[in-house]
Amino acid sequence: MRRADRLFQIVQLLRGGRLTTAKTLSDKLEVSERTIYRDIADLIGSGVPIDGEAGVGYLMRAGYDLPPLMFTTAEITALVAGARLIRAWGGAAMAEAAQEALVKIDAVLPEEARDRAAAVPVHAMSMPEMNDELRWRIDALDAATEAHNRLRLSYADADGTPTERNVRPLGLWFWGKVWTLVGWCELRNDFRMFRIDRIKRMETLTRFRPERGKLLSDFYAQEKHRH
């Protein structure tokens, strides 16, 4: 979890005027109590009205709220439509995060803007192809990309021919009903794109160190030059 997200969550958890211990906050946010103490100090230093002390607990005085987010109509449409698309076509964790994002957007928008968000006419429905296995695989590939974990893929090409590849995952592309993994293929010693629905099995291997010439930015540059 990013630090900015954690600070936001601490403020949310302290709402309501109830005394909350650093241990409770650390358990919920999966960080150390020392990290919570440091975050609380930073929040107090930035003007958030939190009372309490280490070993006793913390509470936030009534009347405090985060500044409202101000979006244009076009921005609201883009945010809501994007979240709905990910909710329908993303991985399981992505879909859950998209739903939470919609709830938070609705909670912080002024009433007029909230009505505009509810009226956005862009919707998305998941299809049978988006089964639980595929959603799990998307999340697993996203996590491996974030952690720089090499993967062993059992893959089938368009003709159904099986192959085994060791891949450095670099990013996920969504083409509309089809997700692909962009990666550095150690067998071909080049960039390759793998349709996620054709991955039969995958195994996490060792971590890799990002190298110049094998980065996602290098792939983009190569594609730009090619086209």
Rank of each mutant, 00 (worst) to 15 (best):
Y64D: 08
R150W: 00
R152A: 14
G57T: 05
G82K: 01
F219L: 09
L153T: 00
S217M: 05
L181I: 03
I138E: 00
L69P: 03
R34G: 08
M1A: 15
A221N: 07
T77R: 10
V11S: 15
L187Q: 15
P121Y: 04
D142W: 07
D157A: 04
R84Y: 07
E133F: 13
A41W: 13
E111A: 15
T21M: 08
L59W: 11
F174K: 03
D51I: 14
Q9E: 12
N166I: 11
D106N: 09
A83R: 04
A158M: 10
V167W: 01
R114C: 06
T77V: 11
G213Q: 06
T21Y: 04
R152Q: 10
I10L: 08
A83C: 09
R84P: 01
R34F: 06
L69V: 12
R116W: 13
L153P: 01
H123G: 12
R6E: 04
A95T: 07
G183N: 03
L85I: 09
V167Y: 00
A107C: 09
Q222V: 13
G17T: 10
F71H: 11
I10S: 06
L153R: 04
T206I: 13
A78R: 07
C185V: 06
M130Q: 10
F194Q: 02
Q222S: 11
G176K: 07
G213H: 05
L181C: 01
A88R: 04
A93Q: 10
A81H: 06
A156Y: 09
D42I: 11
A81I: 02
L170E: 02
D218R: 13
P128L: 14
F71I: 08
